[in-house]
Amino acid sequence: MSRRLILGITGASGVVYGIRALELLRGTGIETHLVLTRSAALTIGYETERRIDEVKALADHVHPLADVGASIASGSFRTAGMLVAPCSMRTLAAIATGNTDNLLTRAADVVLKERRRLVLLVRETPLHLGHLRNMTAVTEMGAIVAPPVPAFYAKPGSLEEMVDHTIGRVLDLFDIDTGTVTRWREDEHR
Rank of each mutant, 00 (worst) to 15 (best):
M1V: 02
S2N: 09
R4G: 03
I6P: 04
L7F: 09
G8C: 07
G8M: 04
I9P: 02
I9T: 03
I9M: 14
A12L: 06
A12P: 01
G14C: 00
G14V: 07
G14Y: 10
V15G: 05
V15E: 07
V16Q: 00
Y17L: 15
G18L: 05
G18N: 09
I19Q: 04
I19T: 03
R20P: 00
R26H: 01
R26W: 00
R26S: 09
G27Y: 02
T28H: 04
T28P: 03
G29L: 02
I30C: 00
E31L: 02
E31D: 02
E31K: 13
E31N: 04
T32F: 05
T32H: 01
L34T: 06
V35C: 13
L36H: 11
L36S: 04
L36W: 09
T37A: 03
T37Y: 05
T37E: 04
R38L: 11
R38W: 05
A40Y: 07
A40C: 13
A41M: 15
T43D: 10
I44S: 06
I44M: 07
E47H: 12
E47R: 03
E47M: 14
T48C: 11
E49T: 12
E49Q: 15
R50D: 14
R50I: 01
R51G: 01
D53M: 08
E54C: 11
V55S: 01
V55D: 09
K56Q: 15
K56H: 11
A57Q: 09
L58W: 03
L58C: 02
A59K: 00
H61C: 04
H61W: 13
V62W: 07
P64S: 10
P64I: 01
L65N: 10
L65G: 05
L65K: 06
A66P: 06
G69V: 00
G69Q: 11
A70R: 02
A70D: 11
S71P: 00
S71D: 08
G75A: 12
F77L: 02
F77C: 03
R78Y: 13
M82D: 01
L83N: 01
C87D: 05
M89S: 05
R90N: 13
R90Y: 10
R90C: 05
T91Y: 08
T91H: 09
T91K: 14
A93L: 13
A94L: 08
A94K: 15
A94N: 06
A94S: 12
I95V: 15
T97G: 14
T97F: 14
N99K: 14
T100E: 14
D101W: 06
N102Q: 08
A108W: 00
V110G: 07
V110P: 06
V111C: 05
L112H: 11
K113D: 14
E114L: 12
R116N: 15
R116E: 13
R116C: 04
R116G: 08
R117V: 10
V119R: 11
V119A: 11
L120M: 13
L120A: 09
L120E: 08
L121W: 02
V122Y: 08
